[in-house]
């Protein structure tokens, strides 16, 4: 049994509910216990960083201080939360002036952050803290018929190369293979989906996600697997518009790696949030 301070981030409480549902059930099977950080606040994502970096770091440091009190590592499912937490720690370490201001802000509410918290992405926790062999031994329903394009996105591997290669990571490839899926060679695995810009500027969202999806299709994938709420939403929401604009026939379910993990570990489909998909994975599930 391994314990973590779970920092969910805002997306998994809304558009990415099925990420949280599948994460909690699948990790539980493997003895990874996620206890939600009491009264956590939004990290501000990359947007607050653009408005005021220092304010953004200060908001994040409240979460770091809360986690430090629990004595546990932070685990977060969202790549943006992950990046912002790591960047805050990095700047606190490198700039004494920023550290002093944050320390004062924390002190003003009787809190402190000594800098001892380790921040991990959910994928990182899984591949680093559980042996792949062990995961493999727990598989009761190998992922037959799943031809997966493993999509990591950007911020889980860049700029903080904490656990995998910044452009050609393969930790999730190995995990999915261990679960019995066929993993296609996907060279765009860390190309950008457009993040918040894809959501606000349709032209950007449609073009970037077309490139990503078309390549997955060309490589013979029948689904794309993601590790980040915003990647998942972007890849999923634009498929109709992409097909109209580029005269293509893309219809790829965009799944969270935790959904496939849970499935392979024998968790019933209903508990993994497959019903929340906008591009259904039913045909894959039936064939499996």
């Amino acid at each position: 049994m391994k314990e973590y301070a779970y920092y969910p981030g805002c997306s998994v409480k809304g558009t990415a509910k099925h990420y949280e549902e599948s994460l909690l059930t699948a990790f539980d099977v493997l003895g990874l216990n996620l206890t939600e950080l009491e009264d956590w606040n939004c990290c501000g994502a990359t947007l607050a960083l653009a408005v005021n970096e220092l304010k953004s770091f200060t908001m994040v440091s409240r979460n770091l201080a809360l986690a430090e009190k629990t004595g546990l590592d932070i685990v977060t499912p969202c790549s943006a939360c992950y990046l912002v937490l790591l960047k805050t720690q990095d700047y606190i370490r490198r700039y004494p002036d920023i550290k002093a201001k944050i320390d004062r802000a924390l002190k003003s509410v009787g809190m402190e952050y000594r800098g001892t918290v380790r921040v991990k992405h959910t994928l990182e926790a899984l591949v680093n803290d559980v042996k792949l062999e062990e995961v493999k031994n727990r598989v009761t329903r190998p992922l037959k018929g799943f031809k997966v394009a493993p999509y990591y996105g950007c911020q889980i591997v860049r700029p903080y190369k904490e656990f995998d290669h910044p452009f050609y990571p393969d930790s999730m490839d190995r995990l999915l293979k261990a679960l019995g899926a066929e993993v296609v060679d996907y060279p765009l695995k860390t190309d950008c989906c457009g993040a918040a810009i894809a959501g606000t500027m349709e032209e950007v969202g449609v073009r970037l996600n077309y490139v990503l999806l078309k390549e997955a299709q060309k490589r013979g994938a029948n689904c794309v697997v993601t590790v980040c709420p915003l990647c998942q939403l972007n890849l999923e929401q634009y498929q109709g518009k992409i097909n109209k604009r580029f005269n293509s026939d893309i219809s790829l379910p965009i799944l969270y790696f935790t959904q496939l993990l849970g499935l392979a570990l024998g968790v019933p489909e209903e508990r993994l949030g497959f019903n929340r998909a906008m591009v259904s994975a039913d045909s894959l599930l039936e064939a499996a």
């Binding site: 990046l83 950007c154 911020q155 860049r158 700029p159 950008c192 993040a195 894809a198």
Partner: peptide
Amino acid sequence: WLCASCYACMV
């Protein structure tokens, strides 16, 4: 404002 913060350039 069009930087999506993918950090490819920086790395």
